[in-house]
């Protein structure tokens, strides 16, 4: 069955994950439309990274569903989810520091292509993020921004369907960030679905079509940037309640 071109690429339904007494994700639901760039925002500790971990299989959900093209993938092994075409980057970059840039790219498995093709593809992607001059360099030798680009390129090795980016802008200088955003838009034009967790509101408001806002592990708002900017619950989550909480406590 062909997935509906205008349908939902990835959906979280009532996802739950607790660490001891901390309900990091507490009944969170949202649906990422196919072929769109969407944003997932929320104050620190609201459960965004944990949600990403649940979507990619790095954490096992305590409850709820994750639907990819309508199929429940919650609790599958990470490599199975990866092979369905869902890839990600990490909040703190995780390139293989002891592998060269090219080896980092080739460490991605599950490519059903000969080595020569994989190398070609790696070369193209390295060029895409302007790292060609560094492809024999060790990952640990790259600047932080360059590592983010490498991680991003690595996530594209298998021509994924859905790409999850955890704080891609953090620690990246403006030039590199601009490059990254251009690439993200280019991916969208080729029909990819992209979900971005980001604290830089310029990135979120200017580049995402739809935004999900989390607080205390649940989605508290959803909509296009214009609506989210004026949403009272969102403003309260970011500024209001915590301040007033302090005031009440004092």
């Amino acid at each position: 069955m062909m997935p509906d071109a205008n349908g939902i690429a990835l959906e979280a339904r009532d996802l739950r994950k607790a660490f001891g007494g901390v309900h990091a994700v507490d009944g969170c639901s949202f649906a990422v439309p196919r072929g769109k760039i969407c944003g997932l925002i929320g104050p620190n500790g609201s459960g965004k990274t944990t949600t990403f971990n649940l979507l990619t299989g790095l954490a096992q959900p305590d409850g709820g569903q994750v639907l990819h093209d309508g199929v429940d993938i919650a609790g599958l092994k990470p490599y199975r989810i990866f092979r369905r075409g869902i890839t990600r980057t990490f909040q703190i970059t995780r390139v293989f520091r002891e592998m060269t840039v090219l080896e980092n790219m080739l460490s991605v498995t599950g490519l059903a292509v000969p080595d020569r093709v994989a190398r070609e593809r790696a070369g193209e992607l390295i060029a895409l993020v302007n790292l060609t001059h560094l492809r024999g360099e060790y990952g640990g030798r790259l600047s932080y921004g360059q590592q983010k680009l490498l991680e991003f390129a690595r996530a594209l090795m298998t021509d994924p369907d859905v790409i999850l980016l955890d704080e891609p802008a953090a620690g990246v200088n403006r030039t590199l960030l601009q490059q990254l955003l251009e690439q993200i838009h280019r991916l969208q034009e080729t029909g990819k679905t992209i979900l971005i967790v980001e604290h830089d509101m310029n990135v979120i408001m200017n580049h995402c079509e739809r935004i999900f806002v989390m607080d205390y592990g649940v989605k508290i708002a959803e909509g296009p940037p214009s609506e989210i900017q004026g949403n009272e619950r969102v403003i309260e989550a970011y500024f209001g309640r915590r301040q007033s909480g302090v005031v009440h406590a004092g």
Partner: peptide
Amino acid sequence: TRIGKAIRATALNAEVAMVCGVNVG
């Protein structure tokens, strides 16, 4: 080899290897 790269990737960082499609088990 690819198996070798996957072994090295797992040794360097098992979680990243997982999301790079390595069947760590």
